[in-house]
């Protein structure tokens, strides 16, 4: 183990946040090197420490692109109008904001940056929760002309200190592709509205970046029933 005494508490905190952010992108299906998610505290500090020993968030942003499996998961069913549609996913930009208060100004600057950089979507990690108005913009932003296509997600550093999906009581959530969802509904003769639901604000749903209308398969281990699957419709 590393000698944690020699690092500032903020550095250790930021190291954990950074690792969770990387793990999150990996779990979503982006191309991330496994060892990236396991960066050691010493390596992290040498890369991102300022002279005063505090983490420099401006050097931490990273981007990644979806893996082929992820692309197929987000494939859009072709229609007569659009026989060869683009998958509903693309490159993502993850940024760690360093401002104590984040409001409309920072959020709009960030959106502009995503649009200029041709990113499909973005994740903004803030020190503290955003202002109410910024959240209001975010809520209405999916589809707004000024933002990126895939929208912006916002996390508070606190949310990423621990990777909640690693907790033993959190079952495995697997996103279904459009096709898999259609098969599920067909097989059980269901309409999607008849499925149990999961809110997109649910921590695991946020972690996976679920969008409204998607279906996740939840796999739990049961002592009596072995592996046990259920499905939820994101709302």
């Amino acid at each position: 183990m590393e000698d944690r005494e020699s690092y500032s508490p903020n550095m250790i905190r930021m190291w954990r946040v950074y690792r969770t952010a990387k793990e999150m992108c990996l779990d979503r299906g982006y191309n991330i090197l496994e060892e990236d998610t396991q960066i050691s505290l010493a390596d992290f500090a040498s890369r991102f420490a300022r002279e005063d020993g505090e983490p420099d968030r401006t050097r931490m942003p990273f981007s990644c692109v979806p893996s082929p499996e992820m692309l197929s998961k987000y494939a859009v069913t072709p229609t007569a109008k659009d026989p060869d549609p683009q998958p509903a996913i693309g490159s993502i930009w993850v940024e760690f904001n360093q401002d104590e208060n984040v409001g409309l100004k920072q959020l709009r600057d960030y959106m502009q940056h995503l649009v200029n950089g041709n990113f499909y979507s973005g994740i903004m990690v803030c020190i503290k929760p955003m202002t109410g108005m910024a959240l209001r913009l975010l809520r209405g932003a999916s589809g707004i002309e000024e933002g990126p296509k895939g929208g912006v997600e916002v996390f508070v550093e606190q949310d990423l200190l621990v990777n909640i999906t690693k907790h033993e009581l959190v079952p495995k959530h697997v996103l279904l592709s459009k096709e898999e969802k259609a098969q599920l509904l067909e097989r059980y003769r269901l309409r999607e509205t008849q499925l149990p639901r999961i809110q997109v604000t649910d921590p695991v749903a946020k972690y996976l970046g679920l969008r409204r209308g998607q279906v996740v398969k939840i796999i739990r281990k049961s002592e009596t029933a072995g592996r046990y699957a259920s499905y939820r419709w994101a709302i």
């Binding site: 909640i164 907790h167 009581l169 959190v170 079952p171 639901r197 999961i198 809110q199 604000t201 649910d202 921590p203 695991v204 749903a205 939840i218 739990r220 259920s230 939820r232």
Partner: peptide, 9 residues
């Protein structure tokens, strides 16, 4: 499934 970390869902 998610009750352990959220009450609303």
């Amino acid at each position: 499934s998610h009750g352990c970390h959220t009450g609303v869902a």
